[in-house]
Design a protein around this nucleic acid. Structure first.
Lengths: 236, 236
DNA sequence: ACTCATTTGTTCGTATGTATG
DNA sequence: GCATACATACGAACAAATGAG
């Protein structure tokens, strides 16, 4: 199921993070490297492409492939990863609490904002993320019940994405995301330790299955002082 | 100089945006398409890969390649594009004013934050971006004078990136970016029409040449109500 | 200024694997 | 089972950038 270039990508990523190829050093040349690994050059280059998207390496025409850093972007929300995945990799003192778990049909406003049809039944989940016992993220999730069946509060307090992929064997395809700053709502003030802040950072996610169907709309509402977004960008 | 797959990418992107392939429709199958275009399948797939990164299309194994939207992400800051490029593509009523233009050597704090060596001479540029005559973005740029020579206020009021690529023939490689919310500084209050807001959204960019050298550190400081960030993410 | 070896970038052709209906 | 379509892998050749001599 997993291809050669993907496992090579994971292997190399691990090697870089373990310091086998320190930042600033050069990888073996492509021809040398694929001779060592006994794979074709195209396969090696596909693995390198993924590493470059992560900001771990950078290829320079005529010179070689340089290692940029051991850990550039992995700690952030740069890729399409869930909170649980980030949490796990970061080892921070995060706690997730499910504060509401109900089914509903969207009203006009929610339907417009989310993109869900008004006829669709949605599983609404409210979760609060605590860091060092301070409530700093308030998550409002809406999942299409018709697509994501069998959700429970227990799953919601763990990792919903793991459940979707491992238990339901559904494939997640793509997502659109926006980041904006908005006035804190009454619900925000109820669910977050906002201190004196009257603004929140709102990250909206529209997530689709591999076949294109929208299955999730989520608002992550952050206390502004604890919000950081990092990404790595390559010129095209 | 530009490859086959890149010009094909630009062509197809234009076709999609012109509505030749409407959202929801399917592209011709890969084998059919590359027979039409008289190119190899690998080349076609590289062009499709770029379109998929833009969020314009989505491939489904065994089914086909679907068009997602005519204009998903182009309007935002998702890719490594400069303000002038965004402005141009958006046709909005933006005006850029250069409010300061000086050379300096970084102190310890700036050196640490920017990543520039204290010995490097930097060209500091302050610019204000107005939308409908309101000052909503305050840009603080630092360029390494040793790498980017000949900058003038006139260039700064137009497009510095265009100058770097077209005049100096330097290649831009990659960048790291963070987005955070911070207290508005005295300088912010001086340069922005902040109304009652006491917070600003700070986008920091560390931009490197193709050979890896850091040539720019920039802070874009936004009035929070006018800030939007959009991106398209694919699961890997 | 030029040549040359090295290295990454692009393109092609072919074959096989795997998901979909 | 079958045809269709996308995904992966390999090998080969040539182009273009780089740096050394």
């Amino acid at each position: 199921m997993v291809g050669k270039f993907q496992s090579l990508y994971l292997q190399l990523r691990d090697d870089i993070q373990r310091g086998e190829y320190p930042a600033g050093s050069k990888l073996p040349s492509e021809s040398e490297f694929c001779a060592q690994l006994k794979i074709s050059r195209g396969t090696l280059r596909k693995a390198l492409e993924l590493l470059a998207e992560d900001g771990l390496i950078h290829s320079v025409h005529g010179k070689g492939v340089y290692v940029l850093a051991a850990n550039p972007i992995a700690f952030s929300f740069g890729s399409l990863v869930s909170f649980a995945e980030v949490n796990h990799s970061n080892q921070l003192n995060f706690v997730t609490e499910v504060t509401a778990f109900t089914e509903l049909q969207p009203d006009v406003a929610l339907s417009q904002l989310s993109g869900f049809n008004q006829a669709q039944i949605l599983q609404k989940i409210q979760r609060v993320r605590k860091l060092d016992n301070e409530r700093i993220i308030f998550d409002l999730n809406y999942f299409a019940s018709g697509l994501i069946s069998g959700l429970t509060p227990a799953i919601a307090s763990n990792s919903i994405y793991n459940y979707i992929e491992e238990q339901l064997h559904l494939k997640i395809g793509f997502a659109r995301r926006t980041i904006q700053v908005e006035m804190a709502s009454a619900l925000d003030k109820q669910n977050l330790d906002l201190q004196a802040f009257d603004l929140v950072v709102v990250v909206r996610n529209w997530v689709h299955l591999n076949d294109g169907q929208l299955f999730e709309y989520t608002e992550s509402r952050h206390r502004p002082d604890r919000f950081v977004f990092t990404e790595f960008v390559r010129r095209r």
